[in-house]
Design a protein around this nucleic acid. Sequence first.
RNA 1: AGGCACGUACGUCAAUGGUAGACGGCUUCCCUUACAAGGAAGAGGUUGGGGGUUCGAAUCCCUCCGUGCCUACCA
Length: 908
Amino acid sequence: MPNLQIIVSIPLKMDIPKQYDPKQAEQHHYTRWEQAGFFAPEINRNPDAPIFSIAIPPPNVTGSLHMGHALQHTMMDVLTRYKRMCGYRTLWLPGMDHAGISTQLMVTRELKKERLSRYDLGREKFVERVWRWKEESGGQITKQMRREGASVDWSREKFTMDEDLSRAVREVFVRLYEEGLIYRGNRIVNWCPNDQTVLSDLEVQKDPQSGKLYYLQYPLKGSDKRVTVATTRPETMLGDTAVAVNPNDERYQNLVGSTLLLPLTDREIPIVADEFVDPEFGTGAVKVTPAHDPNDYDMGQRHNLAQVVVIDAHAKMTADAGADFAGLDRYKARERVIERFEDLGLLEKIVDYEFSISKCERCKTVLEPLISLQWFVRMDQLKDLALGLLAKEGKPRFIPEPYEKVYTNWLENLRDWTISRQLWWGHQIPAWYTAGGEMVVARSLEEARQKAGTDDLTQDPDVLDTWFSSALWPFSTLGWPEQTRDLETFYPTSVLITARDIIFLWVSRMVMMGMKFIGREPFADTYITGTILDPQGQRMSKTKMNGVDPLEVFDKFGVDATRIMLASVGSTDVRWNEKQVESYRNFANKIWNAARFCLLNSEGATVDPTSLSATKAQLALHDRWIISRLNKTTRDLHSAIGGYDFHDAVQTLYHFFWDDFCDWYIELTKSDVTSEEQTTQRDVARTRLVTVLEQALRLLHPFMPYITEELWQRLPGVDSKLLHSAYSGASATIMLAAYPESREELIDDRAEWEMQLVIDLVTRVRNIRSEMNIKPGERVPVFVSAPDEQLRQVFNASADQIKRLVRASELRIESEASAPKASARAVLAGGAEVAVPLEGLIDFEQERQRLGREQEKLRAEEAKLHAQLSNPNFVDRAPAEKVNELRTRIADIAQRTSQLQQTVENLQ
RNA sequence: AGGCACGUACGUCAAUGGUAGACGGCUUCCCUUACAAGGAAGAGGUUGGGGGUUCGAAUCCCUCCGUGCCUACCA
């Protein structure tokens, strides 16, 4: 472990600014955490520690941080930090994807500025150049992840083009090939004329398009009849090799088998019958172009039709399109075909038509379906592995659950995967060809030479789809095909957190490859995050320029505020709302100032967890109460985080800290804590206060790592003793402190009930003060009457605090009401009443109205409950527990009502 | 075209079939020595419309309206 400067400052009386400055806190801690090795699993010294691991969805090397990353990373970091504090041996493995097309485009664009093309450089020089680009400008995102506070183990950072990962890629390729699951073949594929490469179905973007439907007439041979076909792409008619009709279509039945004269060419083409044809659409007759349309390709296979290629890889017409068209751009050719048909009188009509068009996901060029020689992965066996895993073991478990169906539906209808790409940047396909055209597939050139028995080999120029290496990510990053310790220890990973748009591209493929090569699932759970939309509800995108830059949000509100806001999003789509972050910024400030108060009153105190487990009898109500609340909060947090309910976890933390701890506990303990005299009682109170804060900081840490570390380091008495036992020997840091455990015996429902009585009393008095316009500074006498002795005891025990919180000049607690008539009153639970004498101040009419409103509320509620209870069916069929609950409530309301009635009468 | 979501306060979102909440905003009052990025109190909802199941529906079912997303081989 490197020798490090410990940035622990314990300035008891030093100035603590009134406002939290996130930049200051974000400055040092990350570097220290990273350098001290806190992120690496090796920090855990417990050989029997349970394992928690996540492989990050590798961001593109070309990418920079966007809101989607920030969202996913936050959730992964929350889980990782949480598990680490729970004592798990924790690995969150970072890395990047080489992102074939994007990266190649990026560098190509750079070259263009130098008026060069990649061909000018040649393959080798070009790839060198990409590497150089990667070293110099790639991987911006890794710096940004450090800013996020992501507790990834940088010592294990991977890149999909690293030698070891590339080796895994070749190994998988060779094995799949040898099993016949990878094959090379001529198929119709999605071709991008701009990028000059094939794309898989998943990289195709379908865009709605308003275009035209052209009705073309083809003359029937030996007749003056014509058959009309409808098409959106007239230029492809030059490659037609048939016209198809539905076999059951009576209009055409007698024409099946006859021959058409294909206009503009000298070809004759048959009319075939095929179930695929929808008689309802267009004319019911379809032109068939096997070389330029996927459906027609299939039809061509069924009917043994010739493939006439009329469009080339640059989307220009070929020589086979005829002298009239050869060399023309596809759209130019379309115009000319239409002109010719019109001249020939064979153009029946043109109608407007809405359809969808296939575009390249990256460059938005309209794709051209072309027949070409490519590599494919056969999916039938692989998809069965994935489906079998789900059926037998229920893995991966999808959260939220409905995605499971999306996943299975897709798997069930899976087609073969086109894995070759005509790019230079990527994993070159490990296939070599001899001069004689013989092919060998091998793990290396040496192996290929051996297999081929010659050194005269040429490697296949294509590279693999980027998603091919991504599919291996969960195990290739751990050293596979070597049986490494990491692989044994951290595979399968615990959970995958990702966005829903790559369920098919990535999630399913990892499952298939994991099952195929390791025999186990790559991750147990899959958590699909929601999407952050722009304020108008639109998807954020570069082209729309409506993205919100997380780094700017960090600058404005701090990393912690942004993180906890993102965590609260959970798995639903939300519109971006800066106000939300602002409110969590305020929360951070609240934490800061609560700590500030504790620190300014911390002399004589020291963090001491045992101070929160003293026996009940020794403690005041507010102490028993906050301990109970703390333990309940802790319990709820374990369950929320364990169930990936990030939203609930955040709400729980927020309310515990702000409402319970700040609004009530600090106020209630203030008299003890701020006492001028240095007494044991004061030290004990201070210790307890600072310890509750310390526990709260631990609970908050996974969500807000910076502010919690910053404050934790300043607490009196924090040292490595507070770390989880698995981290003995490490220097003091909150990120290795034990995450609090909930202790059932410290949950005190009685204390919570009593405290609620006090809170209600205080709130009622404040209400009266506010409604009666009593100046905040003015002290007034307060009379509490409670016939129930228990209640009086509760109020008496907290009398001092109550007095202070309601700013009472005196507080009388009696069994019977003795307040003067001219008092404002409010009814409390258990037949108790509180009164504030307002001689001369009270407006009887106003007071009557106020009480009237109160009565109205009670009456409405009572009526509702009464209606329910008087329904015999309810009493009969609802569970007895529910019925009793209702009876209790109605009794309570009845008591309040009569009490209130009394109060109103007393007003006279 | 099919499939899947969603529709709750002014806004953004919560709520195992059992008293509809939070945060922001809004109103009133307060710079009360942790915090005005704060405190106290308050107003605000027939849960998109209609129907059904149930003792009981924001929640389950049907239907209509509206909005998103995904899939698809209709030329």
